[in-house]
Design a protein around this nucleic acid. Structure first.
Lengths: 160, 160
DNA sequence: CAGATCTCAGCTATACTGAAATGC
DNA sequence: CGCATTTCAGTATAGCTGAGATCT
C-alpha cells in the first residue's frame, strides 16, 4: 500500500510553490517549443512576427522591447525571418541608425499558421483545467508577474 | 491616456498562458537562486540535502531519482556537498556499485538554515496573493504537472 | 548476458553581457 | 558630449547525452 516507489520527492521539495512553478514551466516550455519546432519556428520567431504584425513597421529595438527579447537575439531572429522572406529589413530614412522591420505577406500567412498551432498547444497544456480554472490560473500568474516586474515601488506616488 | 509605452507586448503574446507560466517561472527561478546563492547554496544542494535528510542514507541514484536530478548533476553536487562536509560519501558494502550518501550534523544544520531561507523566499514570491489564492495556485499547478508527467494513460486501467 | 551504478566529458538552448561601429 | 541602435563575439547556466568502468 505504501507507495514508496523510490522516486517520491522529499516533502520539503513538494511544499515549494517555486518548484511547482519552475517544473510546470519546464514541461510547458518543452511542449510549446516542440509544437513550434514541428511548424519550423521558435518562440522568438513567433514573438517577432506577432510584434511586427501588430505594431506595423518598427525598429528592431522597439520590437525587442515589446517582446522582452534581448537586442542580440533580435538580430539573430530577424536574420532568420528575413532569410525566409517572412519579414523585410530596410534602413529607416528618418533615423539612419535603425532598421525598419516589415512583415511580408508570407510572414502574415506563417503567423496565422503559428497562431493555430499555439491555440492547439494552449488547449493541450490546459486540458485538465475547466474554463474557470484556466482563467483563475492566468489571473494568479499575472498578479505574480506584474508584482515582480516592478521591484520596489508600491501603489501611489513615490515619497519625495 | 493611451499607455502605448513602446514596450506593451503584442496581444497574441499576452494571451498565451504558456508565456505567463514561463515568464513567471524565470523570475521565480532568479529570485530563489539568488536567495540560495546568498546562503552559499544552489537548488541542487538543497534538493540533495533534503532527500538525504528525509530518506536516510541512500545511494546517489535513488537521491537523484527522488529529486528529479540527472545522474551527472548528482555526482557534481555530491562532490561539492562532501567538500563542505555536509554529506559523507561511503561505499555500500551490500552493493559495491553504490555510494551511500549520509547527511552530517553540519549538513543538517545547513539544511535548517536553507529551510528558513526558502520559507522567506516563498513568502516573498507569493506576497501579492492571499492564503486561499496561494493554495489555489499550488493546486492548479499540481494538476497541470501531474497531467503532463503521465504522457498518455488516462485514469483507470490501461485497455488490454 | 542484461541491467544498474558512478564518473567524466561534452553538448544544446536560453538568456544575457561587452564592446565596437554608426548615427542622433 | 551623452545616448540610442545594430551587430558580433562571448559567457553562464540548466538540463541532458554518451561512453566507459565496475558491479549484481
Amino acid at each position: 500500500m505504501t507507495p514508496v516507489s523510490d522516486d517520491t520527492p522529499p516533502a520539503r521539495l513538494q511544499a515549494l510553490t517555486s518548484r511547482l512553478l519552475t517544473r510546470t514551466a519546464t514541461r510547458t516550455h518543452r511542449l510549446v517549443a516542440g509544437r513550434l519546432a514541428e511548424a519550423g519556428a521558435t518562440r522568438y520567431h513567433y514573438s517577432l512576427l506577432a510584434a511586427a504584425a501588430e505594431f506595423g513597421p518598427a525598429s528592431q529595438a522597439e520590437l525587442g522591447r515589446r517582446c522582452g527579447l534581448d537586442r542580440s537575439d533580435v538580430v539573430a531572429t530577424v536574420n532568420e525571418l528575413a532569410a525566409q522572406d517572412l519579414v523585410r529589413r530596410s534602413p529607416d530614412p528618418a533615423d539612419r541608425r535603425r532598421n525598419t522591420i516589415t512583415i511580408t505577406p508570407a510572414g502574415t500567412r506563417a503567423l496565422g499558421r503559428l497562431d493555430a498551432v499555439l491555440a492547439d498547444t494552449q488547449d493541450e497544456l490546459l486540458a485538465p483545467l475547466s474554463p474557470e480554472e484556466r482563467g483563475e490560473l492566468a489571473r494568479l500568474l499575472t498578479v505574480l508577474l506584474t508584482h515582480h516586474d516592478r521591484p520596489d515601488p508600491g501603489p501611489g506616488e513615490p515619497a519625495p
